[in-house]
Every structure is written in C-alpha cells, then in structure tokens.
C-alpha cells in the first residue's frame, strides 16, 4: 500500500503497514462503542467513551507519523486536554447523581418521558 509515498514513510511503517494501525484503532473504537452500549454503569460507559477517544488518538498518531505531519499529534493533545475537562464535568455529574439516588446505574434513570 501507499507505494507512491513510500520514500517519506517512517521506518516503523516498513515493518507494520498503516492499515494495521487503522484496523487496531477501529477495533478499539468498536470495543468502546460496544462497551457504551452494553454497560449500565455510568462510570464504565464513561470509560468506554474514553476508550473510543484513545482509539482516535491512536489513529491520529498513526496518520500523523505516516504523513510526517505534526498536526495530527497536536490534535491528540487537544483531545487529551478536552477529554480531561470532560472527565471533570462528567464525574461531577455522576457524583451529583450518586448523591441524589445512591446509584449510578443509568438504566434506573428513566423519569423523563413524554
């Protein structure tokens, strides 16, 4: 793959093709999604989402180094920073809920319906 730009590709890709990184990241991402879907515990769902984000990070880094372009890695820092903010807010929300109903099982949260 990508023979046309083979001269610019870093060494690591000589051994591991890009597509493997993509597949790995996609698998991680999918695992994250499945986690989100099947778990009921808010914290675990949240962790699954973090997994999705990290899959994206991995993907970005892979592309970044394959392209020899720093932008991707910069983006990763943004993601990490923003994710941290999200974690802060998310955990605060979860704590708030735990205080009120003493559980963080989201399947029990179903008061809102039309």
């Amino acid at each position: 793959m990508f023979e046309s730009s083979i001269d610019r590709v870093p060494d690591v890709f000589m051994q591991i093709p890009l597509v493997n990184f993509v597949l790995l990241a996609t698998m991680l991402f999918t695992i994250g999604i499945i986690g989100v879907l099947i778990r009921k515990n808010a914290i675990i769902i949240f962790m699954s989402i973090e997994l999705m984000l990290n899959a994206v990070n991995l993907l970005l880094i892979a592309f970044s180094s394959y392209r020899s372009d720093p932008n991707g890695q910069i983006f990763v820092f943004f993601i990490m920073a923003v994710a941290a903010a999200e974690v802060a807010v998310g955990l605060a929300i979860i704590v708030m809920i735990f205080r009120n109903i003493k559980t963080i099982d989201i399947s029990l949260l179903n008061r809102l319906k039309g």
Binding site: G90, I93, N100
Partner: peptide, 8 residues
C-alpha cells in the same frame, strides 16, 4: 440530573 447525564 437525568437530563444532564444523558446529555453528557
């Protein structure tokens, strides 16, 4: 709370 966690 529920709205918030769902949204989040």
């Amino acid at each position: 709370n529920e709205a918030s966690i769902k949204y989040f």
